[in-house]
Deep mutational scan, measured.
Amino acid sequence: GTVKVQGITIKVPNPDKAYKIAKKLAKKYNLTVTRKGNTIKVE
């Protein structure tokens, strides 16, 4: 899958794990995490 952070896309082998990490970071930096299948977008 991929993770998008402010325009940066990161390929990740485990979208579930990445999503959990993204959620933690999002809370810390007051961002929104959206997930569509293997693509995770943080904005």
Rank of each mutant, 00 (worst) to 15 (best):
A22P: 01
N38I: 05
Q6R: 14
I21D: 01
V12H: 05
V12S: 03
I21R: 04
T9P: 04
N38H: 05
K20W: 13
L25Y: 09
V5W: 15
T39E: 11
E43K: 10
I10Q: 02
G7T: 08
A26F: 13
N14L: 08
V42R: 01
K24S: 11
T34P: 00
K17P: 00
I8L: 11
R35E: 01
G1R: 06
K23I: 11
A26C: 13
T34K: 09
V3W: 07
P15T: 12
G7K: 07
I10V: 08
K23E: 06
N38V: 05
L25S: 00
T9H: 07
G37E: 02
G37K: 05
V12G: 03
I40E: 01
N14G: 03
T9N: 06
P13W: 14
N30G: 13
T32V: 13
K24R: 12
V3R: 05
G7C: 15
V12F: 09
K27A: 10
K27I: 10
K27V: 06
V42Y: 04
I40G: 02
K11A: 10
K27C: 08
T39N: 07
N30H: 11
V5S: 05
K23R: 12
I8D: 01
Q6V: 13
V5R: 06
N38E: 05
D16Y: 11
A22L: 15
I10R: 04
I8K: 06
N30A: 08
Q6W: 15
A18H: 01
A18E: 00
T34F: 06
A18C: 15
N14R: 06
I8T: 04
T2P: 05
Y19L: 06
K36N: 10
A22D: 00
T2C: 15
V3K: 05
G7H: 08
P15G: 07
I40V: 06
V33R: 01
K27F: 07
Y19H: 02
V12R: 02
N14S: 09
T39R: 06
N38M: 06
P13C: 15
K20R: 09
N14V: 05
R35N: 02
G37C: 05
G7L: 10
N14M: 11
Y29T: 01
A22F: 15
K20Y: 12
K28V: 12
P15M: 14
N14W: 13
Y29V: 03
K17R: 10
V5P: 04
N38C: 14
V12Y: 05
N30Q: 08
K4Q: 13
L31S: 01
I8S: 03
T9Q: 07
K11I: 11
N30P: 04
P13K: 13
E43A: 10
Y19I: 04
V42A: 03
K28F: 13
Y19S: 01
K41N: 11
L25V: 03
K11Q: 12
I10Y: 08
Y29L: 07
Y19N: 00
N30S: 07
I21W: 14
A22Y: 11
N38L: 05
K20E: 11
Q6S: 12
G7N: 07
K27S: 07
K41L: 15
Q6P: 07
K41V: 15
G1I: 12
N38P: 03
P13F: 11
L31V: 08
V3C: 15
G1Y: 12
G37V: 02
N30R: 09
K23S: 06
K23C: 15
A26P: 00
T39Q: 09
N14E: 04
N14I: 06
N38K: 05
K36C: 14
T9V: 10
K41A: 08
T39F: 10
A18T: 04
G37I: 03
K17E: 10
